[in-house]
Design a protein around this nucleic acid. Structure first.
Length: 506
DNA sequence: GCATGATCATGC
DNA sequence: GCATGATCATGC
């Protein structure tokens, strides 16, 4: 053994030798003649050829004597050169039949994942897994406040199981710790649950992608991992057949690296600020939601101008960030800073202005979808499903006469049944595009479409979401009526009535 | 007064 | 220049 399996320090030190290298360089004899692809393969190769133990699926950590769990995970490079997690980090599978009897501190989750050794590598499509460059290697223990929130998340997942609702679990139920589906196909991965005959999709605990990004930013900062690509990546590390591609990849690495150094300088002002300034605050409230909502209570009944003046602000009311600024002020967050808890939990903040009838003045829009993308996707891979699976934070203002009054705030995530309703809208939209039957009638100043309308579905509808009618995305199939090969951008919207009845009034 | 098509305004 | 959150405009 090249390390002492009883000592986490020894394992971590050995692991750190991976940094700035590829598996091909470090395990060359065993691996060099293979072309490896596929999800999860990197982790298996790492365990078998670098740490030299056989991959297992025990409930213990990967290094049981040291209490250390090994997790490898891909990074992607953003256009601005920053590194981000490519996906969530999937942890142990949730055993519905057993976990409801556990408590957090002695749970299988905590036993396995209290101390994690992360190996982050740079993912590039179609490149042999053993040529991925390992970028960040470090161990991770959850900070106290995060752990408290994760415990609350864990208990919330457990509550759903105890209520016989394992089949209704959603990513939006929780903040940092998610319960993501796991298994090749949905049908094949159904599992029994203890308090309901309905089978539930197999799920695993996972760290949400945004939380993983937070981990990455901390590990990268502590270790000053900035110039990973200073050293040339030797061409021999890429298999001959892929040499052309490898050249491109190398070129890209350097380009990105330069970009990254530039943006790193520019991005220095970006600060994440916590709502929870001291851990003791957590003990005063039942949940983190209650704690956060309590911050807003002093301002209920006031209008935006009054709230501004309380904080000595004078904001541009037309600015897109106007309500976001008010929200930050009430949370005690600097206007230039990001709300750490919201960023880490990928919470979607929406400000809604209601009429006196409690009906929102406007429905809520989401980003425009790409016609070519949507026809190639399945529901559970779609952006719309991801959005609707998120946790939302609503800030409600309500008109009383001409005065706009701050009414209330609310954490919310869409109930399982309503996500199923929204799925119908998505499927119908996809069909409409696939069949090329989008435009119903062309009128002088507008076009009528076959897209789902708000009267067709309780939850959602499709509407234009473009700068002008000429602001288009290409169509995968030309429209039958007009022959158009592109069409103005559209997006999914939440119905105003749904917001009123299912979010504001509930 | 609402539903739906269309567009604005800002910031990156 | 475009993505995004927000808002306008018209006809029934």
């Amino acid at each position: 053994m090249k390390y002492n399996k009883n000592s986490s320090d020894s394992i971590i030190a050995y692991a750190k030798k991976l940094k700035d290298h590829t598996l091909r360089e470090l395990c060359i004899d065993e691996l060099k003649n293979h072309d490896y692809h596929g999800k999860g393969k990197f982790g298996q190769l790492l365990e078998k050829y670098y740490f030299e133990y056989e991959p297992n699926s025990l409930s213990e950590p990967d290094f049981p004597e040291a209490g250390l769990e090994l997790k490898s995970s891909p990074l992607k490079i953003l256009k601005n050169g920053e590194f981000q997690s490519k996906e969530r980090v999937v942890l142990n599978i949730i055993n519905f039949m057993k976990v409801h009897k556990e408590d957090f501190k002695s749970s299988s989750f905590y036993k396995k994942n209290a101390h994690i050794l992360f190996v982050f590598f740079v993912y590039i499509k179609d490149v042999n897994i053993i040529d991925y460059l390992i970028h960040i290697v470090d161990d991770w223990k959850f900070p106290y406040v995060d752990l408290r929130i994760i415990q609350q998340d864990w208990e919330r997942i457990n509550l759903k199981i105890k209520e016989g609702k394992a089949h209704e679990i959603s990513e939006g139920d929780t903040f940092y710790l998610g319960a993501c589906t796991k298994g090749s196909t949905a049908e094949r991965s159904l599992r029994n649950q203890p308090f309901n005959d309905i089978q539930a999709k197999q799920r695993a605990y996972s760290l949400k992608q945004s939380y993983v990004n937070h981990i990455i930013s901390i590990l990268a900062k502590d270790k000053k991992v900035i110039n990973t690509f200073d050293a040339d990546i030797p061409r021999k590390h890429f298999p001959p057949l892929k040499q052309h591609k490898a050249k491109l990849v190398q070129k890209n690495y350097h380009k990105k690296n330069i970009l990254k150094t530039k943006t790193a300088k520019l991005a220095k002002g970006l600060i994440f600020e916590r709502i929870i300034k001291t851990p003791e605050l957590l003990d005063k409230y039942i949940s983190i939601e209650d704690l956060i909502i309590s911050k807003f209570e002093p301002y209920y009944g006031k209008n935006p101008r009054e709230i501004e003046s309380i904080f000595g602000l004078s904001l541009n009311r037309r600015s897109k960030s106007y309500y976001a600024s008010l929200t930050k002020s009430m949370l005690g967050i600097g206007l230039d800073n990001k709300i750490e808890e919201f960023e880490k939990a990928d919470i979607i903040v929406k400000t809604v202005r209601l009429k006196e009838s409690n009906l929102p003045k406007e429905s809520i829009s989401f980003p425009a979808f790409k016609y070519e993308e949507i026809v190639a996707q399945e529901w559970e891979d779609s952006n719309f499903f991801t959005i609707l699976s998120s946790k939302f934070f609503f800030v409600f203002y309500r008109f009383e006469g001409n005065d706009l009054i701050f009414q209330k705030t609310k954490f919310w995530n869409m109930p399982y049944k309503d996500i199923e309703e929204a799925k119908k809208v998505w499927l119908e939209t996809r069909n409409t595009i696939t069949n090329g039957k989008i435009i119903k009638q062309v009128l002088p100043h507008k076009r009528l479409t076959y897209f789902p309308k708000s009267i067709d579905n309780k939850v959602s509808h499709v509407r234009p979401h473009a700068t002008t009618v000429n602001d288009c995305y290409p169509l995968p199939v030309p429209d039958i009526l007009t022959g158009d090969i592109e069409y103005s951008k559209h997006s999914f919207w939440l119905n105003a009535n749904y917001i009123k009845n299912e979010i504001f009034l509930k």
